[in-house]
Design a protein around this nucleic acid. Structure first.
Lengths: 119, 119
DNA sequence: TAGCGTTATATATCGAGATATATAACGGGT
DNA sequence: ACCCGTTATATATCTCGATATATAACGCTA
């Protein structure tokens, strides 16, 4: 590594990280952010528009996440005094925390590898 | 982490990794594979078709890589007895090796995190 | 029973990226 | 002078995912 030219200084190591099951993605940055926005706004539609995402896409993500676990990460309710809404369950919150901790370790890995590269 | 339900067993941590400069991607899995195919076949067009990629895309990747370093990673030649061709320079080979070593460490990270998640 | 905001779902439209097609240039061989 | 396979480049076409649009259902309110 020590004979990589100086210009290597300009490069950074970057990456993406996610959890997946047999064939489907389970959790990634977008799904985590969506759950956080649902926590904040109390509905899928408001969460979606808050992050510039179509309702349909957000709905599909919730469907995908919930379909891969026994206890759903997001509960939805149609109708009612406010028309309905969505909440993140304790299970959902747990995954959010676990994912964030994972990302912290990943960022350390990337920073370390970038340092290594630029040696 | 210890109170994540059993079904977490089914999830793996996966990821992508690449090198980038200020605004452009520099090296990722596709570009590395392309350089390896160029080494193998001696031309961009053969390398591209060998990995089911259009010549145009392969050419753009070579252009992008070479534009980000002083000494090009891939040298091309037009015309001549065989019509032309392309070769990977020692600098290119060096980056291939550095990237592969990085990927090995990344795979270890992912395996470790998957184990941690399922622990 | 009518109104409301939302979830839930299907269908249609659009646009970006990929692919296909075309053409020029290159330079050695014959 | 012409042929060859490749690099180099522009343009046209296509495809698929994303987005937009539309509609139904839900359940509380009043």
């Amino acid at each position: 590594m020590e004979d990589i030219p100086k210009e290597t200084q300009r490069f950074r190591v970057r990456g993406h990280l996610w959890l997946e099951s047999e064939k489907d993605r389970f959790l990634g940055p977008g799904r985590i952010e969506l759950m956080e926005k649902i926590k904040e706004h109390g509905s899928i539609s408001k969460a979606a528009s808050a992050m510039g995402m179509s309702y349909k896409k957000a709905w599909n993500l919730v469907l995908s996440m919930n379909s891969q676990v026994e206890k759903p990460l997001v509960l939805t309710q149609t109708g009612g005094s406010r028309g309905g809404g969505a909440v993140v369950t304790p299970e959902g919150e747990h995954y959010i925390e676990a994912y964030k901790a994972l990302v912290v370790r990943f960022q350390e890995f990337l920073a370390n590898e970038t340092r290594h590269l630029q040696g």
